[in-house]
Design a protein around this nucleic acid. Structure first.
Lengths: 259, 259
DNA sequence: CTCTTGACTTTGTCCGACAAAGTTTCCTAG
DNA sequence: CTAGGAAACTTTGTCGGACAAAGTCAAGAG
């Protein structure tokens, strides 16, 4: 039977497991089910929805993957809001799959990090300044110890902190996918380019000072310099900016980005 | 029995449905299973993995939600790569849930759209220029007809095209979540501010011309003006930039963002 | 050759069952 | 009376089988 022509549109019934998933998702999204609250046992859901347990379980799997519910340590289900990092790491994976190059990452990182610095100037708090100082101490210690991995992680944290200090959650979210792939290269650079760590420390110092002084121009300038420095370091480490990221990471994958 | 202290770490076996999902995901990600290829029937997977059909189905639900497989029109399963738009709309939803304001969206959109314009200057092709001209014609027609919805959609398409013309896939991806929430407001503005459409048309015209002439300065300048114009229009439409987006969209949701 | 019909396949849903692991209850020994 | 432990209960993960609806395919009727 061909339904392509006729008076009526095709009636489409969504599978029951989808309806179950959507119903629970609505509860979470609407706030009637708060993050952390138990969703209920499978048996309860079976009762409430009036479908079979297998059907409920299929719906649960979809929600789990979507980040709307989570299994607790006791294997029970708890509601939760899709976290940024979940989504970000998925996006990063998608970027890898699409074989983006470091040049592409760099351009976006430049735009977003400079924007972060700019907005941080206007919104930064004393507490965030303090955390940046702590971070700076950690970076200096890591450089002293010659621990490239530790330094790289702290550098990544620095930029995250600056974005956070901007008070702009959209910015914090938007920069995450690219930076998740971008900043781990710091390790590579620091391992191969001796002047990398000292230059990084100087740049961070200037950025922190600019934020402290609420100096928009300096913040913008040094963040931009810092990023361009990265680009130079990347080239000096013998890497090709137009190489797909996955090839560079083939040897040393950043934590959390399992391909 | 308490396992909190002891010589060995707790052995954790992942549930079978997760292993199934991961196995199939690996096939897709590694390229052994190409997008569009059939994954196989449930019965086949049951045979290959040696688990029950219910278990396979749970794994399938997770993959489906993750975007690694899709049901075809014949309800069979086909492999596919997680598409940008899927992830983007999830991110947009997360942004709504976190009650971000238009001011936050604006800052990010400004940074990313200007970056798009800049990079488009260097990479735009004649074909993309032609598509921008077509888009401009569509916008003028929509403005002529006074169709705010159509105009808004075309405006959104314009910015997507510019980003695409940049040749930077990371940029294309990064701008999507914010712009999915940001540009639909064009409809609101055009409905309330009479001088909106003509100003929009002039700005787009200048941007296209700058791209044609490979004029970096002009491209940057007009994209920036265009965005600031949006901000003014938003205010003139009687909206508060610091209002959470969801409240503005409570009345007229943009298509595709069902909350 | 086209059209219909019927067999086969595949998915969506249901039922019932059981093992493993965690929880609760309750009983007993000190 | 309390601490410890065993038994009962709960919950999840997995399994087997079953059937209806809808799609696919092939053979037979016109």
């Amino acid at each position: 039977m061909d339904a392509s022509q006729g008076r009526f549109e095709r009636i489409q019934v969504a599978p029951a497991y989808q309806l179950v998933a959507e119903a629970i998702e609505r509860e979470v999204v609407s706030g009637r089910l708060l993050p952390g609250e138990p969703v209920g046992t499978e048996a309860e859901l079976v009762r409430q929805f009036g479908v079979n347990r297998s059907t409920v379980r299929e719906g649960i799997r979809a929600l789990e993957e979507g980040g709307f519910i989570q299994r607790g340590p006791d294997r029970r289900l708890y509601a939760c809001l899709p976290r940024y990092n979940r989504l970000s790491s998925r996006m990063s994976r998608a970027l890898i799959l699409h074989e983006v190059t470091f040049r592409e990452l760099f351009s976006v990182a430049l735009a977003l990090e400079v924007a972060s610095a700019e907005q941080a100037v206007a919104h930064i708090t004393d507490e965030m300044l303090e955390r940046l100082e702590e971070n700076q101490a950690e970076i200096e210690a890591a450089a002293q110890a010659g621990d490239a991995a530790r330094l790289s992680e702290a550098d990544s944290a620095f930029h995250h902190l600056v974005a956070k200090a901007s008070g702009n959650r959209v910015l914090l979210l938007s920069r995450e996918p690219a930076s998740l792939l971008f900043f781990p290269t710091t390790e590579l650079i620091c391992r191969r380019v001796p002047e990398g760590p000292p230059r990084l420390i100087v740049a961070h110092r200037h950025i922190i000072d600019a934020l402290k002084a609420r100096d928009l121009e300096q913040a913008r300038l040094w963040m931009s310099r810092h990023l361009h420095d990265w680009q130079r370091g990347f080239a000096r480490a013998g890497r090709d900016l137009d190489e797909p990221v996955e090839r560079v990471y083939a040897r040393s994958l950043p934590p959390g980005i399992a391909v």
